[in-house]
Every structure is written in C-alpha cells, then in structure tokens.
C-alpha cells in the first residue's frame, strides 16, 4: 500500500554550492506509476534534484518525500525503495555481469540464494542471459547500460531515478535503453528521469517539468507543452524565391490579428502562428488556386519540443528580468 498518493513530492528544494545556487525552490509532485521527466539545459539543477531525492545530497532548504518517506529524516527507508541509475554506468567491468548483480543484491541485503535467483531473472528480463558470465568491459554501451538498469531493479523499487540514461550512447544504444525503459513502465514502475534530449522526454514521459536555474518553468504533458507556446503554425514552402513576398502577404491575411509571418529565404519557407489551423489552411489553399501560384509545400505543424523549450526559457527569463528591474 502506498503511504502517499505521490511517489515523489518535493516542495521548495534549495541547494547551494558556495555562491552557486543549484536549486532555487524547485517543486515536484510525481504520482505513482508515472514516467516523469525533468527537462532542462545543463546546469539547470536536474542532477542535483535527483541526487537529493536519492539521498546522495543534503538539502539546504525545503522538504522532499520519496515513496512516502522523508529523504532527510528517513534516508534508510528511502534507500530500500529506490533505484538509482546515475550519469555514469556504475557496473564493475572486471567481474561478470551475473557477479555484478549478485554483488549489488548482497549489498541490498538480499540473502545469497535470493540474490542469485534475482540476478538470473534480471539477466533474462534484460536480454543479457547469454553474456551472464562475461565481464561488462566487452559489452556495447547499450548492454552495459541495461546491466546498470538491472542492478537498480534488484529490490523492485517503488521509484526509479534515471539521470540522463542515454547520454553518451550511440543511436542504437539509445533505442535499446528506450525500449527497456518503456518495458519497465509497462510494469508500473514509477520513473523520474532527467534529460536534455527533447525527443527522449517526448518519447518516454507522461509528464514533463521544464526546469532552468533550479526553478520550475512549467509542467505539462509533452503535447500540452507543445501547445503551450501558442498554436499550430502554418507553413508554406515557395517553389520560386520571387513568390516569397506574395506568400508572406497571403499567410498574414489568413492568420489575421495583424500577425507577422517569419520568412526564411534559405529554405524558401514562410511560417506563421495561426489560431484556427484548418480554416487558415483552406483559405490559403483557395487563394493559391485563385492566383495560380505553385508552391513546393503547404501544411500545418505543431511546434517541436525544441522550439517549446527555447520559447519557455526565453519567456521565463524575460519575466525574471522584469521582476528584477
């Protein structure tokens, strides 16, 4: 029985290193069973947050509960209920993959017989049974990371922390690890992961908290985040560079509200934010036919998470500057 509705709850987390403020009042609420992403640039405080929640760092202010226990007052109870996969792959490269899992099992205070059984189960589950008796130094990056993940799951943790799980992996390794994380979450494990890869957050997470300078910027679903920076954009790609001014005028008329289109002369594209995407699209299409203008492409698209992120960071920073001024 969960002791709280939330696997992770944090309020006003503060952490300073000398004069640097790593966390400046970060709040988090992660319900059980969710894959929750902390998204932000390097230095945003993501890793610090994970280190505090996994009892590796002391808090300077605020409070945090993981699996219903206070990280400051009950760290030992927290440690029995979490798994941590840090930025580096923390497996022993010399002893075999199986011995690695037995080692960690023993250090999780699992008895010898159970540790062996659990090691074999996890090797099977993570597709490492065939290399069980080989040392990880011969493994690919993706395989080592999978073993690393397996080691954090020995006690079937209530909350799994993944700090940049695919940083440093090649594309094949990233896909492998993504698949493994997706399998885990199908089994209901609560995951808190940090990433600065937007596609990763988009792909894996149910909800995303965007953080910067140790503060929350916004929290939403991946789709919600994309919607948040405004609506869809209408994009027209010209067939001829000379058509660009005419197309820009067309787009501005269709979007209305006195909006200005963005014209990219390199890609010959005109794009503009629109409130009613379908109406604007049909209007432009009709005008193009009426004026017999040929275009290379015409369409509606959602902003990418990259654009969402840049936009959110910029607006938040503007707000801060205004407050400061």
């Amino acid at each position: 029985m969960p002791r709280s509705d939330y696997a992770v709850r944090a309020a006003g987390l503060q952490k300073r290193y000398g004069r640097t403020t790593a966390l400046d009042g970060l709040d988090l609420a992660v319900p059980y069973g969710m894959v929750y992403g902390l998204l932000g640039p390097n230095g945003a405080g993501k890793t610090t947050a994970v280190r505090i929640l996994s009892t590796l760092l002391r808090l300077d202010g605020g409070r945090a509960e993981v699996a219903g226990y206070d990280v400051t007052r009950q760290p030992r109870l927290v440690r029995r209920r979490i798994g941590l996969v840090g930025q580096q792959t923390a497996v022993d490269d010399v002893i075999t993959a199986r011995d690695n899992l037995i080692l960690f099992g023993r250090l999780f205070h699992v008895d010898r017989v159970t540790a062996r059984r659990r090691a074999d189960e996890l090797l099977e589950q993570f597709g490492l049974a065939e290399v069980a008796n080989k040392p990880p130094k011969a493994f690919s990056g993706g395989m080592r990371r999978r073993l690393d993940l397996a080691a954090s799951l020995i006690l079937a943790p209530e909350v799994l922390f993944l700090d940049e799980p695919t940083t440093g992996l090649d594309p094949a390794g990233r896909r492998e690890v993504w698949q493994t994380i997706a399998d885990l979450t199908d089994r209901g494990t609560t995951v808190l992961l940090t990433t600065h890869y937007l596609d990763e957050a988009d792909r894996l997470c149910d909800r995303i908290a965007v953080v910067d300078h140790g503060r929350n910027l916004v929290e939403d679903t991946p789709d919600g985040l994309k919607r948040r920076i405004g609506n869809e954009r209408l994009e027209i790609v010209a067939a001829e560079p000379n058509d660009l001014p005419a197309l820009a005028a067309l787009a501005a008329k269709a979007a209305g509200d006195g909006r200005e289109p963005t014209v990219d002369e390199l890609t010959l594209s005109v794009s503009i934010a629109v409130t009613d995407g379908v109406r604007a699209l049909t209007e432009v299409a009709a005008e193009l036919r009426a004026q017999s203008l040929a275009v290379a492409d015409l369409g509606l698209r959602r902003p990418t998470l990259d654009e969402a992120f840049l936009h959110l960071t910029a607006t938040a920073n503007d707000a801060t500057e205004r407050t400061a001024a």
């Binding site: 280190r51 009892t55 979490i82 941590l84 923390a90 022993d92 250090l107 999780f108």
Partner: peptide, 18 residues
C-alpha cells in the same frame, strides 16, 4: 567516485562505511 560506483553504493541500503 568517477564512475558513479560510490553514488550507487550510497543510494543503496548498505552500510555507507563499508
């Protein structure tokens, strides 16, 4: 320390001094 081994140990219920 560099490979995150100490982090992993310290996030586990094992005795930190070990």
């Amino acid at each position: 320390k560099e490979k995150g081994f100490i982090d992993r140990f310290l996030s586990m219920p094992m005795s930190p001094s070990a």
